[in-house]
Structures are given as structure tokens and as C-alpha cells.
């Protein structure tokens, strides 16, 4: 009877449609984020993360309507990320029914934005997303740097230092993505995750690289993650959420079953 570790499916959406596809056999519209969110919630997902990758600002109105529709039908926490740059962006998403927003690039370019956001809306709804890449050489102690622009631009910022700073500014949670592992299905960067998790008091969501259910277990037990985020292993029906939860529980992890 302890706090459960969380499984968080992530939906990447462009103009209100889920991209990367979701392959549920019996789903009518594989691109509808509302239907997919409801499906994941019914399956026992502990939260939903909605990542908006819509490029143009004008089309973001669609995203707001999508978030409203999800929030009207799905009663588990909903995090919205992607393009959150101003306090108004945050207010808009919270008013639409998001419970948390995830701030990524805007935090790197203007760290005080995180402080302002946490002061205005409370740390509980401010997630800082960090994209980290290993920069230490083989044989050296692990060192990771924050990257922007999908892992293409180095910032020179040390990942562990950055996490500490963001928490001191009021981040309530850290979404940590390994750019080395993202999309590889070779498992989380456990050393990175552990280094960050052990350096801050707030929960860490591990992301990037999940290929099988043992990766989720390792993320929690070795990487010290409080939650695990995954997209493709659930979207493509390789594993179901109940299956993942049962597997993790069997390895001794407290789950909400």
C-alpha cells in the first residue's frame, strides 16, 4: 500500500490528429486523440500526455478544442506540452481542461518563465521537459547536456544542474527524455535517469527508448523513475497497458491495478 509508479502513454498530435498512428484493432478512428485517450484511460493508464507538434500558431486553436474534448471525457490527469511559451499559453491550456503543462524549449531560452509560471499557477501543474544527450566520452563519468530542436542544437547546459535549477524555480515534475535513446527501442538511458532523479526532490518521468516491458521495470528499479512514458509500444499494440502493469507488479513494483 504505497504510492504507485505511473504509466503514461504519450500522444503526439498535429493539428488535432494523432500522428505516428495508433493501431488498435477495434478503434474506429486511429487518429482521434479523444477516442484514443478514452481508450487508454479505460485500459488503466495513470495519466495522459498530449504533445502538440503543430507547427503554426494559428492552427493551435484546434489543439485547444481537442484538449477540451479529452478533458470532458477522460478523468485522469492530462498534461499538455509543445509550444508552451507564455503565461497566456498556460492559462489557455488549463482553462481547456489540462491539469499540467510541460515546458521545454521556452525554459531553456527563458528560465525565469518557469519561475513565473510556478508562482502564478502553482508547481503542481508545471512540468519541465528536458531533452538530454550524453556528452561524456567512454570511460569518463557520465555527463549529459541539454539539447533543443529535437536534439540538433547543443546548449552547453549540464542536465543534472539544469534539473536542479528548474526544480529550484518551481518545476513540480521533470519529464526527462534521452535523445540518444528516443526512437531506438533499446531502453531508457538508466544512468542519466538515475543521475537526475537522485539529484532532485520532485518526481521524474523517464522517456525515450522503451522497446519492451523489462525496459519499464528497469526505468523504475535502476533508473529511479517515478513514472514511465511510452508511445510506440502501446500505440502499435505490441503491449497493452494492463499487461505492462501486471509485468511491473510481478517484478515487485507498486502499481495501480
Amino acid at each position: 500500500m504505497a504510492l504507485a509508479k505511473r504509466i503514461i502513454p504519450c500522444l503526439d498530435c498535429d493539428k488535432g490528429r494523432v500522428v505516428k498512428g495508433v493501431k488498435f484493432l477495434d478503434i474506429r478512428d486511429a487518429g482521434d486523440p479523444v477516442e484514443i485517450s478514452k481508450r487508454y484511460s479505460d485500459a488503466g493508464a495513470d495519466e495522459i500526455t498530449f504533445l502538440d507538434i503543430t507547427a503554426s500558431h494559428e492552427e493551435r486553436e484546434t489543439t485547444v478544442h481537442t484538449v477540451e474534448a479529452i478533458a470532458g471525457q477522460v478523468f485522469i490527469p492530462l498534461t499538455v506540452g509543445g509550444g508552451i511559451r507564455t503565461l497566456d499559453d498556460i492559462r489557455t491550456m488549463l482553462n481547456a481542461g489540462a491539469d499540467k503543462v510541460s515546458i521545454n524549449t521556452a525554459a531553456v531560452f527563458n528560465p525565469d518563465f518557469v519561475r513565473d509560471a510556478a508562482e502564478r499557477f502553482g508547481s503542481q501543474c508545471i512540468v519541465v521537459a528536458m531533452d538530454a544527450k550524453k556528452v561524456s566520452l567512454p570511460g569518463e563519468a557520465g555527463r549529459w547536456e541539454i539539447f533543443t530542436h529535437g536534439g540538433r542544437k547543443a546548449t552547453g547546459i549540464d542536465a543534472v544542474e539544469w534539473a536542479r535549477r528548474m526544480v529550484s524555480y518551481g518545476a513540480g515534475e521533470i519529464l526527462l527524455t534521452s535523445m540518444d535513446r528516443d526512437g531506438t527501442k533499446s531502453g531508457f538511458d538508466l544512468a542519466l535517469n538515475r543521475a537526475v532523479s537522485d539529484s532532485v526532490s520532485v518526481p521524474i518521468i523517464a522517456s525515450g527508448g522503451v522497446g519492451n516491458l523489462q525496459d519499464l521495470v528497469d526505468g523504475v528499479l535502476t533508473g529511479h523513475a517515478d513514472a514511465v512514458l511510452a508511445a510506440s509500444i502501446f500505440h502499435f499494440g505490441e503491449y497493452s497497458i494492463p499487461e505492462a502493469k501486471r509485468f511491473m507488479a510481478d517484478k515487485g513494483i507498486t502499481m495501480r491495478l
Partner: peptide, 30 residues
């Protein structure tokens, strides 16, 4: 962590097995 407790990497809170617990208490509990 007086004043701004989230700064501390160790919350000072631990479970029955002595493992350090994160603060905030965030997630699903019984």
C-alpha cells in the same frame, strides 16, 4: 528546506524500508 522545500534533493521523508520519498506526493495512492 525552510521556505522553499522543493530545493532540497533529499526531502527527509522516507518509507518503512528507509527509501527516500519524493515531495510533492504525486500520483495514485490508497
Amino acid at each position: 528546506g525552510a521556505g522553499s522545500p522543493v530545493n532540497a534533493s533529499n526531502s527527509g521523508l522516507s518509507d518503512e524500508q528507509g527509501n527516500s520519498l519524493k515531495v510533492p506526493h504525486m500520483g495514485w495512492n490508497c
